[in-house]
Amino acid sequence: MKIVSYRDEAGGSRVGVVVDDAVIDATGLLRPQAGGTSAMRRLLEDGRPLEDILSGLDGDPMPLDDLRLDPIVPDPGKIIAAPVNYFDHKAEMQEAYHVDSLGLFLKAPSSVIAAGEHIRLPYTDRRFDQEGELALVIGRRASHVTTEEALDHVAGYTLLLDITMRGGEDRSTRKSFDTFTPIGPFLVTPDETGPLASLRLRTWVGGELRQDADIADLIWDVPQLIAYASSVMTLHPGDVITTGTPAGVGQIGHGDRVAVAIEQLGRLEVGVTSEGAVACPTKGATTGPRPPATVTPVRAR
């Protein structure tokens, strides 16, 4: 099942099921919930299996292209990210450590945007890179779960771009600017994703293929990431965990189009603008991990 978040004409949060190139609205199947959370959060927090909630789906299909998409989870409780989780990315960044020493970091929930929107580069004098990633959305509360139990807590999988300012500032700062987490366009349930180890991730900038990697090459796989994250902090429905990026990160700039795709999950594409950018007030530009001056060549397959 593919699920999408979108806005109605009045700006209200909606959720629907994708059938071919159309969407059937499922918002009316959700239980009322106080607090102003998004329709997607209401769906995930319901507690019933998604297939049970959506079994009563009925309505006229709407063309997907006519909808104003939201980030797949417009209001995630938290975004948990894995630093340096591919060996080839560790090598290109000349990093001394990877995920098993670095742990995890957080990105601001306010940094999410939807497919078709624009990354806004805030500064004129700093480097910004693209990082394409597989992400998952938590569907059941998880605390201290084992790797064997971990996947039972996944509502589905999606695509994510972890946009990064290079430098020595803390990761959570460099990756949390507004618009720095494009996510979506779909939440794909595990039954349609297939084995995670069979997935292949690719990222393009301006039509140039920059990243081409197998999810099987993750240092910590998805169950390990979920289990570890749940040992640090309780995971709640609507939380996002993103799994890290492979080699091929590179600079993005005004006017670029950035896309990441996994065949089973679709394609997430956004624009880039530096309109309104100013000089950076922090001085970390010459410190921190050093990305390659040119994009790491895509490996032969």
Rank of each mutant, 00 (worst) to 15 (best):
I3G: 00
P292H: 08
D58Y: 10
H254K: 02
R200D: 09
R31N: 06
T27G: 06
S13I: 03
G167M: 04
Y157V: 08
F87A: 13
L106Y: 12
D65K: 15
H144E: 12
F180T: 11
G132A: 09
A300W: 08
E133A: 08
R126Q: 13
V18M: 05
Q33L: 12
G238P: 14
A115D: 15
G207P: 10
L209I: 12
K78N: 07
D178Q: 12
D88W: 07
Q264T: 14
I226Y: 07
D170W: 09
T287A: 11
A135S: 14
P223Y: 01
T294S: 14
P32R: 04
A82T: 14
E117C: 03
A22L: 02
G77W: 03
C280H: 14
Y86D: 06
P122N: 11
K90E: 11
G56M: 04
T193W: 02
T179D: 12
Q251M: 04
D66C: 05
M233Y: 13
L57C: 06
D152K: 11
Y6A: 03
P195C: 05
S110Y: 04
D217S: 15
V17F: 04
V18H: 01
I79R: 08
V249D: 02
D70R: 11
F186K: 08
A247N: 08
P182Q: 07
R257K: 13
D100I: 08
G255N: 01
H118C: 04
E9P: 01
A91I: 14
R174V: 08
V232P: 02
Y228M: 07
L159C: 09
Q130N: 07
A213M: 09
L196P: 11
T164E: 01
V188P: 10
Y6G: 03
D191Q: 13
L265G: 09
D191E: 15
L209R: 14
V278S: 13
I53S: 03
L196F: 14
D178L: 12
V15N: 01
P297Y: 01
A229D: 04
M40K: 03
R267V: 12
L235R: 08
P122H: 09
K2C: 07
P246Y: 10
D170F: 12
I138Q: 06
V84F: 03
L30T: 11
R301F: 10
A114V: 06
D162Q: 06
V137D: 12
G47Y: 07
P71H: 00
P32A: 05
D21R: 14
T181Y: 00
I183Y: 03
L209K: 12
T173D: 03
R140G: 09
Q94M: 10
Q130H: 15
D46V: 13
A108K: 04
T296G: 05
G77E: 06
R202Y: 04
E51T: 15
I80H: 01
G266S: 05
L54M: 10
C280N: 15
D88S: 09
R267N: 02
G77N: 13
A279N: 09
A10M: 06
T245E: 05
S5T: 05
G288Y: 07
I24V: 15
V18L: 06
L69A: 00
F105D: 02
I72F: 02
P76F: 07
T164M: 00
A39P: 13
H254W: 00
E192D: 15
H254P: 13
K107S: 05
P49Y: 09
